[in-house]
Nucleic acid binder design. Structure first.
Lengths: 218, 218
DNA sequence: CTATGATGTTAGAATCATCTAACAAAATAT
DNA sequence: ATATTTTGTTAGATGATTCTAACATCATAG
């Protein structure tokens, strides 16, 4: 049995993992708001349970089992977010904190029902993919807006590290998933971008353009 | 701040309280599946927090503050049950365990939204009244079916101590809230009742008739 | 290539919710 | 009215999750 606390560590590991699947103790500690020594001891415990590969002074990695369990928590989180937005009428900036709580409900039927009522969605309201019941994730490789070039025409596909502040920033500018935009120019000094979309003109800082995932829109 | 554990104790006290508002340590212990010494120490803690009146060897009573907090937990539970049945399509016998988990979500907006989507219901799927946002409960005095007499015509209004087994028992006999029934006769030996409704004829044991609350239906 | 700062670990303590064993009070039955 | 059973309390221990203080290792900037 995986406790609520353990679920939170697994989810954080899953979300923080880089391409190599590695996470530092320090990062994890900051993400969870829990001191490093506590994290270390929890990692030892999760290693005992074969959920994490742990070696002193080495980066943390989820085992296959750990990845699956983590993905199932993420699944519950994202299904919940989707339900809150689609069926209950919440804004995409409001749902993270609520889903953070609902995700710990232990009832397979409950989440199966959410899934069914939503028509088995593949992505959550922020464009993040929803793992399937086996913890498998259909990865689609979007590009960061920040890595695009002047003249590119792209479509907003997902948002990363979604904070309520950033989502409100997007709401204020009327940007949502699917918004098609053209990159007018990029300021070499600080990487800020001039963008046009929907007859609007906005300038995005690098901080913003790094958090928007886009697809080519011809 | 009231912990999840404390919420469970408060809710159990609320549900078990007799007319005088009293609950024994032993009852509470059985209800929660927690040993008596643990209950005693939690009662001292809740007394510190002014949520319970506690005196050694005396029955337990919620304070006014405790009653309000307990009612707010019950409110969350019953709103959730209502939502699960009305908006998500669960059967009334399935929802208790799920609601038991969802009720601990800490988000006022979430439950306000449930309330709104449900049209501010006054009763849950089992006929139990839903406390308002101030913890106030519109008590309606139904009668137990077991206290009715031969010849009475009554309408099922609520179900008490709803266990999944009892609710399935009712489902199997096609009994739901609003079912109108006539008491044909009562067996003096064991209190079992012969009942007719919807062109059916059934015999109810005392155990069953004590758990159905009814209103006079002329 | 060492000094310094950042990162990670160990040791020990605190808090919460739980338990068992032993004792005490209250209720009940003879 | 005493013995027995039921109910309730005290004392002390356990496991989970967290902390702080002190120490160890790693990474890096001179």
């Amino acid at each position: 049995m995986i406790s609520l606390t353990e679920e939170n560590y697994l989810k954080a590991l899953f979300n923080l993992a880089n391409n190599a699947g590695e996470v530092n103790v320090n990062e994890l500690s900051k993400q969870l708001g829990i001191k490093m020594p506590t994290v270390t001891s929890m990692m030892k415990k999760l290693a005992e349970k074969k959920l994490v590969h742990y070696e002193s002074y080495k980066p943390l990695r989820l085992t296959e089992k750990g990845k699956k369990e983590a993905a199932l928590v993420v699944r519950k989180h994202r299904l919940t977010e989707m339900f809150l937005v689609d069926k209950m009428g919440f804004g995409w900036e409001e749902v993270h904190d609520i889903a953070e709580q609902v995700e710990h409900v232990r009832s397979t039927v409950f989440f199966d029902k959410l899934d069914e009522l939503l028509g088995f969605p593949k992505f959550d309201p922020h464009g993040a993919p929803i793992p399937d019941k086996n913890g498998k994730l259909a990865w689609i490789s979007y590009n960061k807006l920040s890595e695009c070039h002047a003249g590119d025409i792209v479509k907003v596909s997902a948002v990363i590290h979604t904070s309520a502040e950033f989502l409100k920033f997007l709401n204020n500018r009327n940007i949502r998933l699917g918004t098609k935009m053209k990159i007018k120019s990029i300021e070499p000094f600080d990487g800020s971008m001039d963008i046009t979309y929907d007859n609007r003109q906005e300038t995005f800082s690098l901080a913003a353009s790094e958090r928007l995932l886009v697809e080519n829109a011809k």
